[in-house]
Write a protein that binds this DNA or RNA. Structure first.
Length: 882
RNA sequence: GGGCGCAUAGCUCAGUUGGGAUGAGCGCUUGCUUCACACGCAAGAGGUCACAGGUUCGAGCCCUGUUGCGCCCACCA
């Protein structure tokens, strides 16, 4: 860098573009198998190619980037594996929407043309997403970028399917499934979103076949009664003992159906008698199996009534409900209608009301997979952060149903199963078979369906590293270290990766799962397209820069908790970046031609130097610790406070007197410490704000290619300087006391005043003498007289008592003795309270005996301190009142 | 019906293993064109840590219960 000075204003656009390109050219993002280094791996949650990234993605990926950048600096072979997800159902829904806008359906195109469209979609959005991630600053290993439908991932999917199939863990069968009439496919239980709807419960009367009265049933879905094939009661329900084995005539359909007994029925609920529709209700389906009941399918896949529904055939299911109810009422079968709330399932992609239908599907048998997955987490092989999410995982795993993996969609991994059209043999194969393994016929047809999109996601940590091949990458980078994702996809993805990885690899896929919350809008509402309250991260980056966006999304947050998006937060982050920029600009302006070799932080140190060096060392410890424990918000707070409140507000101001002074040695020391602390701080800040830190760092006198590969600062216990921290604390307290008096009396900032300061002891006096140059500057003092307790005081003066000293400001013309007395009396009151509190605590034998010695000692110290202050204030009051 | 989270300054939120709430940003008051920064500086105001018990020498933090808000899971029609 020839240009040593920073421009007055930080321009994120130019800087970010420049450095990102530089990093890429240098190959810093790339990780290789390297036996000399310890690996550290993160696989990205592959964003869906459905559309551009939203603000939640920005946060998710900023988190991952923070982790991977720190690990890289710490010397790990850090791999962040990137890629995108084909998102079978979600993408298909989008494409069909686009088609609909053209007045077309997927059938107009046909499967092949439709898939061409889908691939074009991938080309467009897949690229957009990658570019967005780059804008955010993500240091992914782009050379390794993958896609869930690329060749390798597709082969992994087929291998996994065939292995599970051959080992009896995948089966095909007709079961009641969640049919989405909108997407025209089944979806798994996880993909159904339940919502409570205000509806009704209808009591119906079914006449007994023998004409001897009625049985009353209750239902929330009257239209399904057309498909009833039984009425069930509890076997021990005394009310219905005499009816068991009898038949009722199904109203409207005139069909006799039996009254059966089943434990499932709750005698307390409704009438204790349940109409059974095995074809249209999951519970009824189970009862139907137990009692071998026939299925009457009255609702079709289009959500309309079938021919089996008789005169209602062709009606939409909700119109049919109205018609059926009207007919039941006019026939005298409707006993009563009561308001009722009940949960209605909706498709998580198109929001249609799910229709439970019996269809022929492929399933994964979950029980043998779930058990090891539960045990592995119990053993701590994978750790959930925050811990509470492990419970959610356990609960899901312990109650998991078999996983329906086939989808009646076109975009996705085609199920690798072929049916022999001659002998009916069913073959699962990784590569397309040419002939039937049983009858050698070549008349084979592949299953038309595709796999659940989560099937390929489940393999992601393995497939991106080469599985099913035993690649060096898989051996080296797997299991991965950290997975970062939102708590809302524990079921969809996290749990599926865990059991899949354990089954195929015998290892958990990652050690730690970090689960963050959702970003809501300023009112706390979920961001959604319908509300139009979403935020485009790229727009924010354009206005404020990526560092600002990253900082604002994570500052002050905690893992697992939702947060809100505010323009004010963005501005606060921007202000922080600006503060850092200006501090650096100041340092560089004063450094001149100062060289890296000139940096000397061991000799000629003043108190303030020792203090800031101790502080930066302490912050190094804190930030490292907070990152180790995933307390990102706390790490950021620590950096923010150090940079703003200590480095800028105090150290830079203090250093000025030496920078502008004549003493060259002192000037060199100040420059050294300013440069050293800034450089350390930039490295600590780099994972959070990669661009601005690089830009500044490149201007500093140091030797290195990039801050990205500079070593992570290490805490050194020997650099801790408690004495300097305490002494500086005293000095700062005294300066603040002077400023406080000045402000209260309205002393013009430009007016320099005289000050007498009396120290408690020799140590304090010595200390004060050391800091005169900047004490005067920071407190606006013209003449500082340093004495000892008991020395003569200026006759008319404002005064303040601070730790180890008392100070007097003889502000002629501004002093009102009565007001001063009031001030001191108020001060005395607070001091009395503090002294009392300490005394009480120390008088408690329980505290003195049981609390750690360190705490007790601290309390004694405090008491002595308060007592001394109180004594000085009392003495001062006496003087003034006499 | 289960489970979980939240309740701390006017607002939005932190608070790491229990040890004076000098908590942060925004907002508010007062004063400052102080030679890095008005996206700033300085000085302030503002809190019974939801409520009630308990454990402890000591509780915002641990335990029990209550209230309010939010979320997740669940095959009672």
């Amino acid at each position: 860098m020839s240009e040593k000075q920073l421009p007055t204003v930080y321009d994120p656009q130019a800087v970010e573009e420049k450095w990102y390109q530089y990093w890429q050219e240098k190959g810093y993002f790339h990780a290789e198998v390297n036996p000399d280094k310890e690996p550290f791996t993160i696989v990205i949650p592959p964003p869906n190619i459905t559309s551009a990234l939203h603000i939640g993605h920005a946060m998710d990926n900023a988190l991952q980037d923070i982790i991977i950048r720190q690990k890289r600096m710490q010397g790990y072979e850090a791999l962040w594996m990137p890629g995108t997800d084909h998102a079978s159902i979600a993408t298909q829904v989008k494409i069909e929407e686009a088609l609909a806008a053209e007045g077309l359906t997927k059938y107009d195109l046909g499967r092949e043309k439709f898939l061409e469209r889908a691939w074009a979609w991938y080309e467009k959005y897949g690229g957009t997403i990658i570019n967005q991630l780059k804008k955010i600053g993500c240091s992914c290993d782009w050379e390794r970028t993958r896609f869930t439908m690329d060749e390798g991932c597709s082969r992994a999917v087929r291998e996994a399917f065939v292995k599970l199939f051959n080992e009896g863990l995948i089966y095909r069968g007709s079961y009641i499934t969640n049919w989405c009439p909108g997407c025209q496919t089944v979806i798994s239980d996880d993909e159904v979103e339940h919502e409570d709807h205000d509806s009704h419960i209808w009591h119906l009367r079914y006449p007994l076949a023998d004409g001897d009265g009625f049985i009353e049933v209750a239902t929330t879905r009257p239209e399904t009664m057309l498909g009833d094939t039984a009425v069930a009661v509890h076997p021990e329900d005394e009310r219905y003992q005499s009816l068991l084995g009898k038949e009722v005539i199904l109203p409207l359909m005139d069909r006799p159906i039996p009254i059966i007994a089943d434990d499932y029925v709750d005698t307390e609920f409704g009438t204790g008698a349940v109409k059974i529709t095995p074809a249209h209700d999951p519970n009824d389906f189970a009862i139907g199996l137990r009692h071998d009941l026939p299925h009457v399918v009255v609702i079709g896949k289009d959500g309309k009534m079938t021919a089996e529904a008789g005169k209602y055939a062709g009606l939409d299911r909700y119109e049919a409900r109205k018609a059926v109810l009207a007919d039941l009422e006019s026939g005298g079968y409707l006993v009563k209608t009561e308001p009722h709330q009940h949960a209605v399932g909706h498709c998580y992609r198109c929001h249609s009301v799910i229709e439970p239908l019996v269809t022929l599907q492929w399933f994964v048998k979950m029980e043998p997979l779930a058990k090891p997955a539960i045990e592995a987490v119990r053993r701590g092989e994978t750790r959930f952060v925050p811990e509470r999410f492990a419970r959610i995982y356990y609960h899901w795993m312990e109650n998991v149903h078999d996983w329906c993996i086939s989808r009646q969609l076109w975009w996705g991994h085609r199920i690798p199963v072929w049916y022999c059209q001659d002998c009916g043999e069913v073959m699962a194969a990784v590569e397309e078979p040419t002939s039937c393994s049983k009858c050698q016929s070549s008349n084979l047809e592949q299953d038309p369906d595709v796999l659940d999109t989560w099937f390929s996601s489940a393999l992601w940590p393995m497939s991106t590293l080469g599985w099913p091949d035993e690649t060096p990458e898989l051996d080296y980078f797997f299991p991965t270290n950290v997975l970062v994702t939102g708590y809302d996809i524990i079921f969809f993805w996290v749990s599926k990766m865990i059991f899949t990885s354990l089954y195929f690899k015998g290892q958990v896929p990652f050690q730690d799962v970090l689960l963050h919350g959702l970003i809501r809008d300023a009112q706390g509402r979920k961001m959604s397209k319908s509300l139009g309250n979403g935020i485009d991260p790229l727009e924010v980056i354009e206005h404020y820069g990526a560092d600002t966006l990253r900082w604002s999304l994570l500052n002050g947050t905690t893992l697992g908790n939702d947060s809100r998006y505010y323009e004010e937060k963005i501005e606060a982050a921007r202000n922080f970046a600006n503060k850092l920029w200006n501090a650096a600009r100041f340092v560089l302006m004063n450094l001149g031609d100062f060289q890296a070799e000139e940096i000397d932080i061991e000799h000629n140190l003043e108190l303030a130097d020792r203090w800031i060096l101790s502080r930066v060392n302490h912050v190094t410890k804190e930030v490292s610790h907070f990152l180790d424990t995933y307390n990102f918000g706390e790490a950021m707070r620590s950096l923010y406070e150090f940079i703003w409140n200590e480095y800028c507000d105090w150290y830079i101001e203090i250093a000025k007197s030496r920078l502008y002074g004549e003493d060259e040695a002192a000037q060199r020391t100040a420059k050294s410490v300013l440069a050293y602390v800034l450089e350390q701080t930039l490295r600590l800040l780099h994972p959070f704000m990669p661009f601005i830190t690089e830009e500044i760092w490149q201007h500093l006198p140091q030797t290195g290619e990039s801050i990205m590969i500079a070593p992570w600062p290490i805490y050194k216990e020997e650099l801790e300087d408690k004495e300097a921290e305490q002494a500086m604390g005293m000095i700062m307290e005294a300066i603040k006391a002077v400023r406080n008096i000045r402000a209260e009396l309205g002393v013009a900032p430009s007016r320099r005043v005289e000050c007498h300061i009396h120290a408690a002891g020799e140590k304090e006096q010595d200390l004060l003498q050391q800091v005169v140059p900047y004490f005067n500057k920071l407190a606006g003092i013209s003449q500082l007289t340093i004495g000892r307790f008991g020395d003569a005081k200026p006759p008319k003066a404002m005064s303040a008592v601070v730790t180890g000293a008392e100070l007097y400001l003889p502000l002629s013309g501004l002093i009102d003795i009565n007001q001063e007395i009031k001030r001191l009396q108020a001060e005395l009151e607070t001091l009395n309270k503090e002294v009392l509190r300490c005394e009480k605590k120390l008088a408690n034998p329980g505290f003195v005996n049981k609390a750690p010695a360190e705490i007790v000692e601290k309390e004694r110290q405090k008491l002595a301190d308060w007592q001394q202050k109180r004594q000085r204030v009392e003495a001062r009051l006496q003087e003034l009142q006499s």
